[in-house]
Design a protein around this nucleic acid. Structure first.
Lengths: 293, 293
DNA sequence: CAGAATAGTTGACTAAAGTCAGTCATCATG
DNA sequence: CATGATGACTGACTTTAGTCAACTATTCTG
């Protein structure tokens, strides 16, 4: 705990202050940040507002300023005329490249005074901190399967299975109701208001439950998100009165199968007639009194 | 390099922003930071200005505001009537305690979602990052021996030797001129405008140089500051035309002696009549053409 | 003991950051 | 095709942050 506090104090204040100084050398910080965030690829105004957590009016004004300076153009997005797209002009890209260079300089200024060994240790530790902080920023919560975040996850899930299964994959689209309470539950994992994982469970009348559509985005794989989803799903199943959870999988999904085994699942014979799976698992739940959904 | 940039981005934006939000929930950030920095022990106004890097006038005004809110009292320091001391009132201490609690909550919010193993890895990595960033923020530069920073180091140096030598220690005070160019050089290591180490070298007419008063503050020991000072001193000696550096030490200074050996120094017979040392070392310098002071 | 230096304060500013309500165009829905 | 929702923009503000120069009270120094 004290380590974390010391880290927060030293690192965020010192590095943060430096970072700001590097970014905001000749224009207000908010403008530099915005320019930086738009990036060479451009960005939708709503996305910028979201990422920078700015007031809509304030952001609009900042965009007008950058537009006035000839660094940015804002045009209606194709498809939806309400949405607007911010893009860097030629001059804006030059400015962005300057910021990019400064960011490199800042990084180098942190490494330069160190010996080679220290540099290696620092970058290794930074990597670890960053990954684990990402992991700790992931939240898991229930959400209706019709929610846009859920849809985005399921699209990604289906796309991935279609790639990994030799026979391709088509997601059933008519069983959403199974994962709406009280019949079941659908969970999404969110990182910085972006959905990065999902999972669902259906409670059956015979005291069993079935977990389906567990998926974790590649961007956060290895951070324990899958395990958190699985644990939460089991908790919901137990709270709904299930004494046993089942699930199916395919040998192409090696990480998932490893996860199931290490979470206490044991292989059982085929229990359904789905065309895709070739492995089936089950786990007994120890019902803890007082668990709430 | 990319690791460092990713780290800067994630950590300063995410954690830094959170940190600010936690601190400044019901008063302006600058006021909260100041209140926090004063702390239960109180602090001199100059120290606050230094630590927070604020304009003197601005800081003064902030103090008046906190004073007006009944959170702080500012009184002349004992000893020097120009210096003023800021202290928390009863209400101020309560506010400080609140901030302290929030800081704990923030730290906990970062650890809570993780497994025990992940927590251990995160705190270990944070500790490493913090130490190495401190190391990389240390700057080494030449400075006159009469400079307040140099005096502070020498006081600390003498105090420490007095403690560690059985026979005590008294610092010679009349040889400052030896360490002023062109006769020699005095270096200080600085961390966040606080002197944390020093070292000096005297160039002799026979092509030898003598390193003296190498000291590193306990707060940064183990970060390679001693080695950096030593290397810099050797560089200055070489630039001044020396082909050999000598120094003396005492068996009580085990870390220093280990440093000298690992830096290529070899033990030689007594070369002076100083009462304190019982070990003497020398190292040949390889003069690199084009080295500049 | 007369300056010079140091530590802090005050007044008069400016710029940047952020907020809020009201408006307008576009899109989805019955 | 009216109605409401959505996404962005504008005007009119307030607050916060920060700067600069002039000024006062101590202390140091020759």
């Amino acid at each position: 705990m004290d380590v974390v506090r010391g880290f927060n104090r030293t690192v965020t204040q010192r590095v943060g202050a430096l970072d700001d100084k590097f970014l905001a050398r000749d224009r207000p910080l908010a403008q530099s940040r915005l320019l930086w965030e738009i990036g060479p690829a451009g960005a939708e105004v709503a996305a910028l507002r979201n990422r920078l957590d700015l007031d809509a009016g304030y952001l609009s004004r900042l965009l007008r300023t950058l537009e006035g300076a000839g660094l940015v153009t804002v045009t209606p997005a194709e498809g939806d005329g309400r949405v607007r797209m911010a893009r860097l002009t030629e001059a804006g890209r030059a400015e962005w490249a300057l910021l990019d260079r400064r960011s490199d300089e800042l990084a180098w200024s942190m490494l330069a005074p160190l010996t080679t060994g220290q540099r290696d240790r620092l970058t290794t530790a930074m990597n670890e901190v960053q990954r684990l902080l990402m992991a700790s920023m992931v939240t898991v919560e229930a959400c209706p399967p019709a929610d846009p975040r859920a849809r985005a996850c399921l699209r990604a899930y289906a796309g991935e299975l279609a790639q990994r299964f030799e026979a391709g994959f088509t997601l059933a689209t008519d069983d959403d109701h199974q994962f709406v309470p009280p019949a079941g539950v659908f969970l999404v994992a969110t990182l910085a208001s972006e959905a990065v994982g999902c999972g669902s469970v259906r409670f059956d009348a015979d005291g069993t439950a079935e977990i389906k559509r567990l998926w974790v985005s590649g961007s956060v794989r290895g951070l324990g998100v899958g395990r958190r989803l699985l644990t939460e799903l089991e908790r919901h199943a137990a709270a709904a009165g299930a004494h046993c959870v089942r699930l199916d999988s395919n040998r192409a999904l090696t990480e998932a199968i490893r996860l199931y085994r290490s979470a206490g699942y044991e292989e059982i014979p085929r229990y359904n007639t789905n065309p895709y799976p070739d492995h089936w698992f089950a786990k007994q739940l120890h019902r803890e009194p007082g668990v709430s959904p």
